[in-house]
Structure formats: C-alpha cells, structure tokens
Amino acid sequence: MKIKKEAMAGTLESSDLLVKVSPNTGIEIVINSDVNKQFGDQIRAVVDQTLNSLNVTDGLIIIDDKGALDCAIKARVQCAVLRGAEEESLDWSKLL
C-alpha cells in the first residue's frame, strides 16, 4: 500500500495524537512526543507494527503524540493511512 495523498487523523488533545501522512519514496517516520524519552521506543514499535500489518511500502508518517495509549496510536495510524491511500475495499482482518 502506498500513500497517495496527504491525510490526517486524531487531535492534539491530552492523551491523544495527531497522525499526518503524505506521499514519499520509502517509509519515513517522524515522532514528536511529550513522553519521547520514556515511551519513544514503544511508540515507534506500535507505528511500525501497524504499518507492517497494512503492508505500507511508501509514505511519510508524522506523529505528534500527547501521551496516547497503544490502542489509540494504532487506530489513528490505521485511519490516516487508509485515508491517504484512498483504499476503497478493506481487509478488515488487518485492522485488528
């Protein structure tokens, strides 16, 4: 799956995150987080796992985290990627 257009999901409220995606050659992930020192590795792992489950091969993913839980990170990344990839048919089993 490739990101075809800019898209976003989420908010900048406390305990949430804003995910922005845009077209790019290869995958590039940028994480800005208030809790990066404590949880940066875990945030990156959740983002990587989510992108792998969706078979994302190209795209720039920018994460602005405000202390979101793993389930919120996964949901926001899925939503932004699906919007940006303009997917019309979903394999719902990949969204678990």
Rank of each mutant, 00 (worst) to 15 (best):
A9V: 02
T50G: 04
G10F: 06
V47Y: 08
Q49M: 15
M8R: 08
D91E: 12
C79H: 02
I62T: 15
D91I: 04
A80E: 01
S22T: 12
V35F: 15
V30D: 14
T25I: 13
K66C: 13
S22K: 13
G59K: 10
V30M: 12
D70Y: 09
L17V: 14
E86T: 07
K2V: 05
D65N: 14
Q42P: 11
V19M: 03
T50V: 01
K94W: 01
L18F: 14
A72C: 06
V46R: 08
A72M: 11
A72W: 06
D34T: 12
K66E: 13
E6T: 04
A9R: 00
A45S: 15
T11K: 06
D65S: 09
L12N: 10
L12E: 13
S89E: 07
V21F: 10
L54W: 06
P23I: 04
S22H: 03
I73K: 04
L82P: 02
A7M: 04
S15P: 00
I29Q: 02
D65I: 07
G67Y: 05
S89W: 00
S53E: 15
G67F: 11
E86S: 08
M1Q: 03
I62S: 15
V46C: 14
G26R: 03
N52F: 11
S14N: 14
L82C: 04
V30T: 14
K2G: 07
L17R: 10
I73Q: 04
L82Y: 05
E87T: 06
K74R: 15
K94T: 12
Q49Y: 15
L54G: 01
G26F: 07
T50E: 06
L90Q: 04
R83P: 03
G10K: 02
E86K: 05
K94S: 08
V47N: 08
W92P: 03
N24A: 08
S93G: 14
D34M: 11
A85G: 08
E88R: 06
V46F: 13
D65E: 11
N36L: 15
R83N: 06
G26T: 03
G26S: 08
V35G: 04
L69H: 08
A75L: 12
G59T: 09
